[in-house]
Design a protein around this nucleic acid. Structure first.
Lengths: 161, 161
DNA sequence: CTTATTGCAAACGTTTTGCACGTTT
DNA sequence: AAACGTGCAAAACGTTTGCAATAAG
């Protein structure tokens, strides 16, 4: 059986290419290329990891105060990027969503309930079983989400001290 | 490989037993047995399926108007029951949670994105893989959630018409 | 010059909280 | 009587929306 493995978190494409892809997307939908949109894309590109809209908002506010970006723009841009398949989100229920640049393959998440760290993995066996289960129920599968919660090695170590 | 299967939705224990379990839980935590708490438990017992706090609130308001139950009590009681392991919830992000009596074994969910129907399943292969993945990452696994989204057979049929 | 986008503030839907009053023990 | 639970209304939370002003094409 294939071993599950962490998904690489380094960007797969150069920023210029990503930017072109984004501009193309905007152009072909009669949308406009704005400083705010570029800044948000750039922030996501240069900071790997998962961010809440709020975190992104505070970051951009402090890095580019002159842009005066409103949080609504963050939300609107993240939705746009998510619909375009450029970012992906993980939902944390009532606590909101976290976003990351999604130029990566599909993956699931394993989350530390102590420090909040999020790791990614892809497991072929689970993917296959999910399809099989959907089929057994007669469902046309569209999507799935799977999260494993636990305590990460570092936090376990701290607990023991 | 074992076939995944729907989890029975009929209650596994008689109401009297459940009620005693609940009373015992309350007693051992110096909590009080109130009409509101009993009514909520009973409503969950007699109506299988998944309910939002709002739905439960409206139901209890119309069935037992004289109780004058506030929605805060519904939330507080559902939290209590969930912490005690008597009910379980599924999260639907910003759209809130749905609760069901959780006197059943662990299971995951397959959800129709068209009509909202929720079916339950348990798949040993997936459970095993999850444990294995947690171990590979050095995590002490505490919990997991998995949801499959798709279109149920009935809605597929309707779509074709 | 047209159309999309923005920031702002208000509205939203779900959930939580503070508090005075009621109930259970 | 003590302690916990309640309803209510207000607040909190993440998110969305209406709108007049602004910027992109």
């Amino acid at each position: 059986m294939k071993k599950s493995q962490p998904v690489s978190t380094s960007p797969l494409i150069p920023y210029e290419a990503l930017l072109q892809q984004f501009k193309q997307l905007l152009r072909s939908n009669n949308l406009k290329f704005t400083k705010q949109r570029e800044t948000i894309l750039h922030a996501l590109y240069t900071h790997s990891g998962h961010f809440t809209p709020e975190e992104l908002y505070r970051f951009i506010k402090s890095e580019y105060p002159q842009l005066n970006t409103g949080i609504a723009t963050i939300y609107r841009t993240l939705s746009l990027l998510e619909n375009a398949g450029i970012v992906t989100s993980i939902s944390f229920g009532t606590q909101g969503k976290k976003y990351e640049l999604g130029v990566k393959a599909h993956h699931d998440h394993i989350i530390c309930t102590n420090c909040g760290k999020i790791l990614e993995f892809y497991d072929e066996a689970i993917e296959k079983r999910q399809e099989k289960i959907a089929k057994e129920f007669g469902f046309k599968m569209e999507d799935h989400s799977m999260k494993i919660f636990g305590i990460c090695p570092e936090c376990q170590k701290k607990e023991r001290e």
